[in-house]
Write a protein that binds this DNA or RNA. Structure first.
Lengths: 230, 230
DNA sequence: CAAAATCGGTAACCAGGGTTACCAAAATAC
DNA sequence: GTATTTTGGTAACCCTGGTTACCGATTTTG
């Protein structure tokens, strides 16, 4: 029944380390529900009862969050092998925190959260692996969010730029390196406007703290940067 | 050996649903290391090899993050029963992302991450419960962080206030309710200054959008608020 | 009950950074 | 090769919100 999706499963972090035969046992145990959707169908609606961890098998879905103003903000576009609802699944909240719609005709598998963490009478090893994979995925996501919070909480543009540069300096190990983001991407990441970012970087250059040309950058005064971070 | 800490374990989310006898089996399996620290000792140092999920048994520890500037920022103060390192433990990073110091003389138990998710030959049910508890804890944390990111990413003070009020309105179900936070707490939560928050709330009142006195608040124009959120 | 601390509204001042618009350099398309 | 698009630097304008300081109302302490 799930044979046709094996290729998808093989590149899905959720099933990492679980071979096809074991996967069959896991599915026997979890009894996932597979549903097909037409383009623009609702796969999940925010506020409604949580139906389970979603795994996209074919097509594409869009995860959207409705903010307080009622606007829809796209959180992610998920392609085959990707998941949605993994944070909500085990946090004890019983409803979808986001909505999911079909961007194209698609097929989605729902793994019931209760059965994933519930007592499986078979106690199969792979089922166990599934849970630890999930733990790893969610932990990773939490760390990413934590990092994002750190950047967003910095109030001055100088502080954001300095923090970003120092973090990259540390990662690269040398004071001259290539920025991993273009100006407008960096502006987005730091949650500031592009011209403001440009202006401030030039000021830093005028002050002799850094030097740059396009994506190549050189840190001249590490300590000055450190003083400005935070 | 762990008998003296049973009271602590009983109020620790990590061990929820695991009774004392089972707990003993789990500890037999995990072989946690218990260490004592003097006041101001380093319990963990950012960047050094990860030693395991920490559980405070006695005393208090401070979790600090060193930012790029080298300043230390207190992330949390943990008392008996509380944990640290739960996100780092399973995200695959091998080093401590934060430092932990002893605020008072204290006792800390380290559960080796590898053994928690590793193959336990006994496959004990409680061990399994431990992992699912962890999954729940980390998921919950991730959701909280996600929510925090949403607020921090809003640029205007009006937007933040409106979003906060609308979210509470939705939760309470009626347009008149009590604010769950004091002004300075709310200012902290929204990452703005207290006088600015006050000023903007008064403007909203002058415009007839809301009405308030101290902690009691009334939303008069829901739609106006919605337009201002985001 | 009086003293002290906390809480929250108000006002003046001003700096940081958003906005807009324009232009030059570089990359890409045709 | 030229044309087009993308990328990024620059400048002027001005609005939002931080800062500081003060004061009255409330709550807490003893």
């Amino acid at each position: 029944m799930f044979k046709k999706w094996l290729k998808v499963f093989s590149q899905c972090d959720l099933f990492k380390g679980i071979n096809p035969e074991e996967l069959n046992l896991v599915f026997n145990c979890l009894k996932p529900k597979v549903s097909n959707y037409e383009k623009n169908d609702w796969v999940a609606v925010a506020g409604e009862k949580f139906t389970g961890l979603g795994v996209v098998l074919a097509g594409e879905v869009v995860v959207v969050k409705e903010n307080a103003a009622g606007n829809r903000v796209i959180i992610a576009v998920n392609t085959p092998g990707e998941m949605f609802g993994e944070m909500a699944a085990f946090s004890g909240e019983g409803v979808w925190p986001v909505s999911v719609t079909a961007r194209t005709a698609c097929t989605v598998m729902f793994l019931p959260a209760g059965k994933i963490v519930g007592n499986c009478e078979m106690l199969c090893a792979s089922h166990r692996l599934l849970v630890t994979n999930l733990l790893e995925i969610v932990s990773h996501k939490a760390l990413m969010l934590h990092r994002k919070v750190e950047y967003l909480a910095i109030k001055s543009l100088r502080g954001k730029i300095s923090t970003f540069l120092l973090e990259n300096y540390k990662k690269m190990g040398k004071p001259t390196f290539l920025l991993p983001l273009k100006r407008n991407e960096l502006a987005d990441f730091l949650n500031v406007s592009r011209p403001s970012l440009s202006r401030e970087m030039c000021r830093l250059r005028d002050e002799g703290v850094i030097d740059f040309h396009r994506e190549s950058i050189k840190i001249r005064e590490v300590n000055a940067l450190r003083n400005m971070a935070e």
